[in-house]
Design a protein around this nucleic acid. Structure first.
Length: 430
RNA sequence: GGAGGGGUGGCUGAGUGGUCUAAAGCACCGGUCUUGAAAACCGGCGUGGGGAAACCCACCGUGAGUUCGAAUCUCACCCCCUCCGCCA
């Protein structure tokens, strides 16, 4: 949510921002409603003030007639007050609906574009050498897809997955399961001493944190909902951001950095027909997420954003997976995001980079909705800034690992950093 | 699933229809005193909205209702706690 004052004073910026994000929202109508809202509120406040004065007069009236006279006057006032309060409620309903639909303003560095095809490459790893792309594994044989490789080594069972869990269901078996566990311990060890607070957070979450983080009311279709009205979170970000909801923190405690784990559930409602094979796009997975609350300062947000991005890149570098970082274009940004980098690892059989991480910052868009504030030493209370990035999501990363590490005989080398956790160097058929 | 208790400022906690403009204490900030600190004493100390300011309005879990007037009465809902049952 943006500050209504900011919208009022920077209408053109907000309108241009929404256009860049390809979000349709009637700012003109919002401002009209806001003017009416303020006018009515002033009138109601004045009537209440009158009522408060009369209330004292009634209590301290010297005679019954005097008292009755004031009460009669207040009975009339009450009628108009009630009407005004009712129309204020009507206006507020529309006003609020528009307010939560106003997107945050994207950063100046965000490229214009219609879809993820317009995201712009920022860098590759390993760095480009020949002008055609970073150093990627050169296969002198036809590489097999992750779908095939994992089936071949009995690392996954998609058929029984569908039988038991339905479309996009899966089982991970043998080295498939062990690889996930190895990766979990690997990522845990990398974050334990970096100033991040480890946390296991709920996936089953009440409505408010979803609205607060900006997933609702817009993306109702992407979420699973329970018969109790709760939702299953698609990311640990939701519960982690909800942690300090409605609280006032101390500035000295910032930045607060969480390394949060949760199972994740996504309906993938808008992705029918995409990535239908294997475990790349699934309804249920686990993810370690980096979440940061910092002081309300653009430079601080940018500093932490770059840091969160580097943290994720460091993991891919340790895993020796070629990747690139892209800056997402306007249309590919979420409602509250100011700027987002996606990190995409190389997928040999698709001859393309595919997303493994998503790193974004929000300024005070989420914290305003969640009411997360902090008090600075001067006693001024401000909304904090928030950011998040994936640390590591499983099992998606397995797709890139098995494809990049496959060998001609069909065996799969284990990334060096995982060998200790796996207790073996290679996955082979025997 | 059953029974009971409860939600008041950063915290504890008083307040059952009208000076509530929410007592008091703790914590915190400033001052006096002191070599310094503690103690004691004095003063300050919630959030949001409107206003140039004086000041005004709202907020006692949430929402409706009764009333001239609601922290206080009524109803619904949410959350927390205790006990019983079930249970990884």
């Amino acid at each position: 949510m943006l500050d209504i004052k900011f919208i009022r004073e920077n209408k053109d910026i907000v309108v241009a921002g929404a256009a860049k994000k390809r979000v349709k929202v009637d700012i003109e109508r919002l401002l009209e409603l806001d003017a009416k809202r303020r006018e009515l509120q002033a009138s109601i406040d004045a009537k209440r003030a009158e009522q408060n004065i009369a209330s004292d007069a009634i209590a301290s009236a010297k005679s019954d007639t005097e008292r009755q006279e004031v009460i009669a006057r207040m009975q009339t006032l009450k009628e108009t007050l009630k009407l005004e309060e009712e129309s204020l409620q009507d206006i507020l309903k529309d006003w609020r609906a528009l307010m939560v639909a106003v997107p945050n303003v994207p950063d100046i560095s965000v490229p214009d574009g219609e879809s993820d095809a317009d995201n712009r490459e920022v860098r590759t790893w390993p760095a480009r050498g020949d002008g055609r792309g970073g150093e990627k594994p050169a296969f002198d044989f036809e590489p097999k897809s992750h779908v095939e490789l994992m089936l071949m080594h009995d690392m996954a069972d998609y058929e029984r997955g569908a039988k038991v869990a339905g479309f996009r269901g899966y089982f991970l078996k043998n080295d498939g399961a062990r690889l996930v566990w190895a990766l979990e311990r690997f990522v845990q060890d990398r974050f334990v001493d970096r100033g991040f607070t480890p946390m296991i957070v709920p996936s089953l979450v009440r409505r408010e944190p979803f609205v607060g983080t900006g997933y609702l009311p817009q993306s109702e279709d992407d979420l699973y909902k329970t018969q109790d009205g709760d939702y299953l979170a698609g990311t640990a970000e939701v519960a982690t951001m909800g942690y300090y909801m409605d609280e006032i923190l101390e500035k000295k405690d910032l930045p607060i950095k969480f390394f949060a784990f949760s199972p994740c559930f996504r309906r993938e409602a808008g992705s029918h027909g995409r990535d239908t094979k294997g475990i790349f796009r699934i309804h249920e997975f686990v993810k370690y997420e980096q979440v940061v609350l910092c002081e309300a300062n653009h430079e601080e947000s940018v500093k932490h954003h770059e840091e969160l991005t580097k943290n994720a890149e460091a993991l891919l570098q340790e895993l020796k997976l070629p990747y690139r970082v892209v800056i997402n274009c306007g249309a590919d940004l979420g409602l509250g995001q100011v700027k987002k980098y996606d990190i995409e690892a190389w997928m040999p059989t698709e001859k393309n980079y595919r997303e493994t991480h998503s790193s974004s910052y929000f300024h005070d868009f989420q914290t305003r909705r969640l009411n997360i504030r902090y008090r600075d030493p001067e006693g001024v209370v401000r909304y904090a800034h928030s950011l998040n990035n994936t640390a590591l999501a499983m099992p998606r990363i397995l797709t890139q690992i098995v494809e990049n590490y496959q060998r001609e005989d069909g065996s799969i080398a284990i990334p060096e950093v995982l060998r200790g956790y796996m207790g073996k160097d290679v996955i082979s058929r025997n």
